[in-house]
């Protein structure tokens, strides 16, 4: 039972880390940059969803779609104002800029949404069901499914639609993509929008299990980044698997060693993994040239 419950916990949250990490992966492969406000994007999804569905009482599907759309708009803004101005001159200052953007967003939400955490009710997280002798909310079982389905949809869209292929083309050879008439800037902006929308999905999924507050994204963002690095940020499946793995390690450590050791074990695993696999589990390094 200890094992089953740890696995359910680990898979549920791990899939959420996987979604966030997938967002890190997408922007990294198309533009070699990372949106360090990914945790804040996740918070934005949850806060907007709460505002639309609970505060304003709009129908849930509408609230979810609008929240995700606005997350996408946030992603476009991040790319346009926090990444592009620096990446264009070959500077790494986007790193600090996206962190600053996250701080600003967190605080703007703090002063508009309010300082108190709120509960996001969901029919999927009210009545527990029995899974192999362990109680779980349906949502907990849905999250890994959504995570894997999202990764699969992402992978399908990438390979089977015109825009997906354009994005793939930019990843594989940006210059050749431009010669095909593909506007790489458009694709990069799209990648950021997609990445923040995935974060928004993660936020909406986790909100009913947790709560909604302005500061909720920070820790999740950091752990998801850890998962992205662990999996090898250049590999889509790598980061999703690492997301699951990361939280499984956390949950199993908690269950068998005790919660005292959880954080230390998880973060030590990152350092050790990078020491032995500098490109992560499934990541790859480029060929160096002069």
């Amino acid at each position: 039972m200890l094992l089953t419950s740890a696995i359910i916990t680990g898979l549920g949250l791990g899939a959420m880390y996987g979604l966030l990490a997938l967002g890190f992966h997408i922007t990294y492969v198309v533009s070699n940059t990372v949106n360090f406000s990914q945790g804040s994007s996740m918070m934005l999804g949850a806060v907007l969803g709460y505002t639309f569905a609970v505060t304003l009482g709009w129908p849930m599907p509408f609230a979810v779609i609008l929240a995700l759309a606005l997350c996408g708009v946030f992603g476009l803004a991040v790319e346009r104002f926090l990444v592009r101005p620096f990446a264009d001159r070959g500077s790494n200052a986007w790193l600090m800029a996206t962190i600053a953007g996250g701080i600003v967003l967190d605080n703007v939400v703090l002063f508009t949404f309010g300082k108190e955490p709120r509960s996001f009710p969901s029919p999927l997280a009210t009545d527990a069901i029995n899974v192999m002798g362990v109680g779980a909310y349906p949502l907990q079982l849905i999250i890994p499914v959504v995570g894997i389905v999202a990764a699969a949809i992402f992978s399908f869209v990438l390979r089977n639609t015109k825009y997906g292929k354009a994005m793939l083309a930019v990843v594989q050879n940006a210059e050749a993509a431009r010669l095909m008439g593909i506007d790489t800037r458009f694709v990069i902006a799209g990648a950021f929008a997609l990445s923040t929308m995935l974060a928004g999905v993660a936020g909406l999924l986790i909100a009913p299990l947790f709560n909604v507050s302005a500061g909720m994204g920070l820790v999740f963002g950091i752990k998801a980044f850890a998962a992205a690095i662990l999996g090898g940020i250049t590999s889509a499946w790598g980061v999703v698997i690492a997301g699951l793995l990361y939280d499984l390690v956390e949950a199993l450590t908690t269950a068998f060693l005790g919660s005292t050791y959880t954080q230390i074990v998880a973060f030590s695993m990152i350092i050790a993994a990078l020491f032995f696999m500098p490109n992560g589990l499934l990541g790859s390094a480029g060929i160096k040239k002069v």
Binding site: I222, F225, A226, F267, I271, L274, F275, P278, N279
Partner: peptide, 20 residues
């Protein structure tokens, strides 16, 4: 170990260190 990697990997190493 940290300087064997660079960019986001190095950033993560140092973040993990702070948490540990």
């Amino acid at each position: 170990p940290a300087l064997r990697v660079s960019g986001p990997y190095l950033a993560m190493m140092t973040i993990a260190f702070a948490f540990i």
